[in-house]
Every structure is written in structure tokens, then in C-alpha cells.
């Protein structure tokens, strides 16, 4: 990988650009929804698009580590933005579910949440994302030290829960959920073999230094 470096100013600009670009699909879907461009069932389409972008952003966030380990692509500076964007999409998805899909009829919403495994899984993801979003700042990282790393491993559970939420909400297991399942299995499976890969790498570089 070419070793090009961004200045600190360029880096922070590119992070802000990522936030702006990341919010575009949601804003565009909202725009389409207002003007009748989301097809026959606009609420469902809007809800699904927001949820799907949340899932995509979670996948991207969890791809940062394997990309750095295996391909020396270092996107760690963008991981917080990816995680927070995913959180915003999950929040928007949930708000659309409450207000537009269920029409704020809380008696039926509560029953829905308690009875439906796929909604419980979606809620679990949302609830777990809250502490991660709250501690996604430098002060928390310093304050929590190694506990911060442990806490943010919850992202694995979040991704698994949101994937299942997506798969179970569908009538059948078609190509689209199959593709996301494969991607998530790779991302989470990598975490299982990562200690071995890192140990081998350390051994390798120690040997390089010794000779």
C-alpha cells in the first residue's frame, strides 16, 4: 500500500466529509419519500433503507481492523465516524418504525417488541449502541483505558444482532440477506482467528529484527 500521509488538517476535513457523505443516503431517501419517489409502500421502503445503511456502516466500521492487519490499509481515523453514523441510522430507523410505521400506538408497539424476536434483536442492537456512542470521545478513551476496548467489543454483538434482525424480518432467505450474512460471518470470524494471525506476525517481525 502506498504510504501517503494526510496532514492533520486534511485528515480532520476528510472525517467531516465522511459524516456529510454518510448522511446523504438517508437525506436522499427522505427527500424521495416526501415527493412520492419511494414506490408503492414509501414508509416501509424508507424504514428499510435506513436500516440497511445502518447495517452497511456497521460492517464498514468492523472492517477497519482486518483491513489494517491484513492489507495495511489504515482507516482507524474514520472508525468513530462510521460507528456514529451507524448509530444515527439505527436511531432514525427506530424513529420511523415508531412514528410512521406503527403510528405511535404504544400499546401495539410494546406487544410487537416483546413478542417478535427480530424486533427484540433490533432493540438489543440499539440499546448496546448507546453506551458506545456515549463513550466515542477522547476523554472516555483516556478515562476508561483498557476497559474502553472491552466495552467496544460489544460492537460484535451489535453487528450479529442487527444482521439477524435483518434476516428474520424477510419472508425468505434471498440473495441479499445471504450476501450480508456472508460478509458478517467473515468480519466476525476474523475476530476468532485474529489472535493467531497477530501472534504469527509478531513472531515473524521478531525474526526479521534478529537476522
Amino acid at each position: 500500500m502506498a504510504d501517503f500521509k494526510l496532514s492533520a488538517r486534511q485528515k480532520s476535513l476528510s472525517i467531516w466529509a465522511l459524516y456529510a457523505i454518510g448522511l446523504l443516503p438517508g437525506l436522499y431517501a427522505f427527500y424521495l419519500g416526501i415527493f412520492g419517489g419511494l414506490g408503492a409502500d414509501p414508509v416501509r421502503e424508507f424504514e428499510h433503507r435506513l436500516g440497511l445503511w445502518a447495517l452497511r456502516l456497521l460492517c464498514l466500521g468492523l472492517a477497519v481492523t482486518p483491513l489494517r492487519d491484513l492489507f495495511k490499509v489504515n482507516l482507524i481515523a474514520y472508525r468513530r465516524a462510521l460507528g456514529l453514523l451507524a448509530f444515527y441510522y439505527v436511531l432514525a430507523h427506530f424513529a420511523v418504525y415508531l412514528a410512521l410505521d406503527r403510528g405511535l400506538i404504544f400499546s401495539s408497539i410494546l406487544g410487537d417488541i416483546l413478542k417478535r424476536p427480530y424486533i427484540m434483536l433490533g432493540m438489543l442492537g440499539l440499546v448496546l449502541l448507546i453506551p458506545l456512542a456515549l463513550t466515542s470521545n477522547r476523554w472516555s478513551i483516556r478515562k476508561l483505558g483498557s476497559k474502553w476496548n472491552t466495552l467496544h467489543k460489544a460492537s460484535y454483538i451489535i453487528l450479529a444482532a442487527e444482521l439477524l434482525h435483518f434476516v428474520l424480518s424477510r419472508k425468505s432467505f434471498t440473495l441479499e440477506p445471504a450476501t450480508y450474512t456472508a460478509i458478517v460471518l467473515v468480519l466476525l470470524g476474523y475476530r476468532l482467528i485474529r489472535p493467531k494471525i497477530m501472534a504469527a506476525k509478531r513472531k515473524n517481525s521478531a525474526r526479521m529484527r534478529a537476522t
Binding site: 419519500g33 415527493f35 412520492g36 409502500d41 414509501p42 406503527r102 401495539s108 424480518s169
Partner: peptide, 22 residues
């Protein structure tokens, strides 16, 4: 088993995001 059948959304009741109640 995975979702409720108590209500439905009538397609085409509203072209936009608002007003398509169950």
C-alpha cells in the same frame, strides 16, 4: 411466527411518507 397479522398497510393510500396509517 415472526410478525403480527393484526394490521396491514393499504398500498397507495399515500404516495409520500405521511398519512399511510395501518
Amino acid at each position: 411466527p415472526r410478525w403480527s397479522q393484526a394490521t396491514e398497510r393499504r398500498i397507495g393510500e399515500s404516495a409520500g411518507l405521511f398519512g399511510g396509517a395501518r
